[in-house]
Amino acid sequence: MKTALRYIAASIALLAALAPVYWLITISLKREVDQFAYPPQWIGFAATLEHYRDAFSNASFGTYFGNSVLLAALSTLAALAAGVPAAYGLSRFEWARSWDLKIGDWILSTRMLPPIVTIVPLFLMLRQAHLLNSLIGLAIVYTGFNLPFVVWMMRGFFDEVPREVEEAAMLDGETRGGALLRIVLPLVKPGLAATAVFCLVVAWNEFLFALILTQTDSAMTLPVGIASRVTQYEIKWGAMSAAGVVAMLPVLVFASAAQKYLVRGLSLGAVKG
């Protein structure tokens, strides 16, 4: 009896978590006449894909989607390229280890800054550099966003690899860089993948910086594109919901792939997952 109550309570929570998402999906699939029908239609409506066609062929959501993909990929690669060597350095070199806490604090505190504190100067800097409304400008900003996180996460993963592993390779004539690339990185591959997934998701979901730094149709990201439609006078709910569904799918797929590392990533490695 008590067990049954527990399952009922957990099921209600699950329902509450998923119902809004489900409703969004149904709106994206309903014909316009059914979208806001009374009583609300949860099931058994006539499904159509016209909103998806509308959103991605006519309403330039296709461009936004491409921008978001490019942006996420670029900024993730850049953050990994700069952050992985730094994490390795922090994990391996004596001077860096003695500085470890300070650097770690520094890295974390840059992440804790409310984004709105740095956005005004970043906006003015990018304006001077003529990088407003450009994917490159936004990619640079996201790289800065994700870099502390990459350093922090990867340092933890490197710490778990014993030094002897690459020292043996270096005795065999490998350079340190070669040892990192060929010996150590393959060992931390799952961690590297999880770190990359987190960077991708952050860049994919980010809204505030994208809103301020990209205002033209050709440079907008998917969240900004969706937002720009919501604040219009007449809202095309179907197309917008369709774009929303498309925006959330990659995140859900990626997150479930990195589920094992979710806790570690979200608590910046402070709690072991």
């Binding site: 809004p20 998402v21 979901n205 998917l222």
Partner: peptide
């Protein structure tokens, strides 16, 4: 996990 914009929509 959803993009916050999508959740708000």
């Amino acid at each position: 996990l959803l993009p916050p914009v999508v959740a708000a929509v």
